[in-house]
């Protein structure tokens, strides 16, 4: 297991590429989250809203993005997590999750995080502050 504390500014966590977004993914998220806005699950409703097809819940993508940090739950926790929803995610899109360390201070690691689609466009972009249980010791 990588020790997050060993990361240097500019280093990235290993990217995760999701399988293409399926309708079932979004139905599951609707059920698990309680967000039944039909533009995420029903084609006609998405079209009525002026969309070319159903789109993923922004929170589905944000939820997925956080899993880059799950392997490190014994080392610390996500203290702050903020994103801006920049682009829509459609069925079949292939989303890749990214996190790059931008700052190390006290016991906090600041990452720039993003999710990009198969065209390389950022669909969400933001920041994670990961709080380590062990202090960073500067040699």
């Amino acid at each position: 297991m990588t020790k997050l504390v060993a990361l240097q500014v500019g280093d990235s966590l290993e990217e995760i590429r999701l399988r293409p977004v399926s309708r079932l993914d979004l139905i599951k998220y609707a059920g698990a989250s309680g967000d039944y806005n039909p533009i995420h699950t029903i084609d006609e409703e998405a079209k009525k809203a002026g969309l070319p097809g159903i789109i993923a819940h922004g929170m589905w993508t944000m939820g997925n993005l956080a899993k880059l940090f799950t392997p490190y739950v014994e080392q610390g926790f996500i203290q702050d997590y903020s994103v801006r929803f920049q682009g829509m995610v459609f069925l079949g899109d292939v989303i890749t999750l990214h996190a790059t360390l931008t700052e190390k201070k006290d016991n906090q690691l600041r990452f720039r995080v993003s999710a990009t689609n198969q065209n390389g466009n950022e669909v969400i972009q933001g920041e994670v502050v990961f709080s380590l249980y062990e202090k960073i010791s500067i040699p």
Binding site: G58, M62, S82, R84, F85
Partner: peptide
């Protein structure tokens, strides 16, 4: 939904 943040 334009932006979202969590603080823990």
């Amino acid at each position: 939904h334009g932006e979202q943040s969590f603080h823990y």
